[in-house]
Design a protein around this nucleic acid. Structure first.
Length: 217
DNA sequence: TTATTGATTGACT
DNA sequence: GTCAATCAATAAA
């Protein structure tokens, strides 16, 4: 399977929250050897740069790690987290505006067996890319791809391969950002509710009703 | 200089 | 439910 034409640069210059929503259903491609790996994006989070306490660019912070957040929209920002995992972001906005969208979940479309193997042989398809670091591991994305263009022949994002109704998109607070209380509850996570390739994590304070046993038929 | 904390995951009680 | 793996950035000293 070969990817179609990438999303245009203008796509990434929209409001970052709009980009996060619009990326749901789009397809992320990664050329690995001779093979194109592909997942449909099913979960994203917006990170709003300078004024977002949970962003790596909070207060305008800039370092070797997050340098690519300051690139023009349409590039990748890949960073290491917890000393052993990578996460991939889609950089948005013009140069010098360090906003980005974290890709947190993908539904395997192409190269599934290669991705399963890269993940260490986890058997179920829903375990392949249902989390930000699972996705990068399945697609062999690491720091070597930091700052790569998302319209390239190595890494690419292409338009939705099917229609997506706004009503399919669920919203919540972001996951794993309790350490930034000022922004911890901002509704910046977008996902397809019920899709098995959404990460199992839950935002802090979220309430998940326990499955109630049906008392009678 | 040392200590703590993650935009996480998988194994285990 | 708990916890370890393991490193870059940041805070504390």
């Amino acid at each position: 399977m070969r990817p179609p034409a990438p999303l245009p640069r203008e796509f990434y210059l929209q409001d970052t929250v709009d980009v996060a929503r619009a990326l749901l259903g789009c397809v992320l491609w990664r050329k690995y050897g001779r093979e194109w790996l592909a997942v449909r994006i099913v979960e994203t989070e917006a990170y709003l740069g300078v004024n977002d306490a949970a962003s790596h660019a909070r207060r305008g912070h800039r370092s070797q790690r997050n340098e690519s957040m300051y690139l023009d929209g349409g590039h990748a920002y890949v960073y290491m987290t917890y000393g052993m995992h990578y996460c991939v972001n889609v950089v948005t906005q013009e140069d010098w505006i360090p906003e980005a969208v974290l890709l947190r979940g993908g539904e395997p479309l192409s190269g599934i067996e290669t991705m399963r193997s890269l993940r260490g042989g986890f058997s179920r398809d829903r375990d392949i890319a249902s989390g930000p670091a699972k996705l990068t591991q399945a697609m062999a994305i690491d720091r070597a791809l930091d700052a790569a263009s998302l319209g390239s022949d190595v890494l690419r994002i292409t338009p939705r391969d099917r229609d997506v109704a706004e009503s399919e998109i669920s919203v919540s607070a972001r996951i794993g950002v309790e350490g930034a209380p000022a922004a911890a509850h901002w509704p910046l996570r977008f996902f397809f509710a019920g899709n098995p390739h959404v990460s199992p994590g839950r935002p802090a304070g979220s309430f998940v009703p326990s499955k109630k046993r049906r008392s009678r038929g």
